[in-house]
Write a protein that binds this DNA or RNA. Sequence first.
DNA 1: ACTTATTTTAATCATTTGTTTAAAATATTT
DNA 2: AAATATTTTAAACAAATGATTAAAATAAGT
Lengths: 206, 206
Amino acid sequence: MSPIAKIKTDGSTEEKIKDAARKLFMQKGFEATKTRDIANEAGINLALLNYYFRSKEKLFEIIVKENMGQFMEIISNIVNNEKTTIQDKVEALVANYIDMLTQFPDMPLFIMNSIKVDPERIKIRQRFSGSYFMKQINEAIKAGKIAPMNPMNIMLNIVGLTIFPFVARPMFLNKGGITIEEFGTLMQERKKLIPGWIKSMLEAKK
Amino acid sequence: MSPIAKIKTDGSTEEKIKDAARKLFMQKGFEATKTRDIANEAGINLALLNYYFRSKEKLFEIIVKENMGQFMEIISNIVNNEKTTIQDKVEALVANYIDMLTQFPDMPLFIMNSIKVDPERIKIRQRFSGSYFMKQINEAIKAGKIAPMNPMNIMLNIVGLTIFPFVARPMFLNKGGITIEEFGTLMQERKKLIPGWIKSMLEAKK
DNA sequence: ACTTATTTTAATCATTTGTTTAAAATATTT
DNA sequence: AAATATTTTAAACAAATGATTAAAATAAGT
């Protein structure tokens, strides 16, 4: 089960508010989500939001931090595993992201927007650059096993190929587009295809 | 010069408002941009916004439509050219997008958000699916010249590899990250690299 | 059972925000 | 130059919004 799904959803007022806030913030963003919307969605009195979380801002920060945490944990665990190969890691990254985003498709756009508003909030990049994965890649380049290039390109390609479809998802699902099911199938296909594409990228000696 | 830069910027009040609105809407989104912010940025009286554009909503629609138009025009012209090869088109798409986004890096996130809020607004997808480019790809697949796959994957990969870095841009530019100049250089590198990667993808017969 | 602490509620406040109004300033027409 | 149309301004309005308050309801502690 995806880590995010493990977030406890007991019946407590605090959790009801956080669940409602998570849903609405992800759907509509910070500004467009009104405290009264959250209170209604959670089925609680408006004042309880401030009672438990002091302010809309603080509540938002908690939600963002939790979501970021999910993203991070997935990356860190895979990317610092010293027992797996480069290709193993690519497969694991792609599969885990696609599974997670299938469950929470609004997350990428939400996180990108959050970072844009407050860039200090997160340093996903560092997770990559300081990782064992990067060490492996640099060694492979030195050994001539993969084409020499700025390693940031590799990260951008893995993440871009995986996440971008979810960022662009609303574009596909409009009238005349594809259905949610078809989109899901396409993503499952890509789960298998992307690692192959990355592999041929790494090998392509221009 | 990029088409968007051609938008006339005479000193008229109407244009001053539109310029300010374009800048702020792109930077902060619809809800977070206040009419008073626009008026200040444009250096005009608040009431003039409603005098010239009736409402914030109408002004926003105009901005979105104009931006979409830019995106569309680039795509359509390239994708329906019957004289260029598949590889030519990939190169042209990538180069044009990167040049445009280098000038207007906030555009992708802005457009993605706009589509999410009102998915009817645009059908970029159709531009691709009904295009001469798609015809070429389907023929190439039939002829066994490129690996058989859902053509939507090809589109997703071209656009994803090109646009995603700009969506993720704020992540790179924070403290401890890379500078704007370094990001620009990286994008120029990718302008040359992406077509090669796409090529090796199309050839990869798994 | 009584007291105290915690949680919930309804009402209200102070700002903010999009929009309107009516008058003033400026430009255009006759 | 006078009359008319257009543009700009300052002020105000009404609704929405985040937050607070004081009282009521409920739970916990002794």
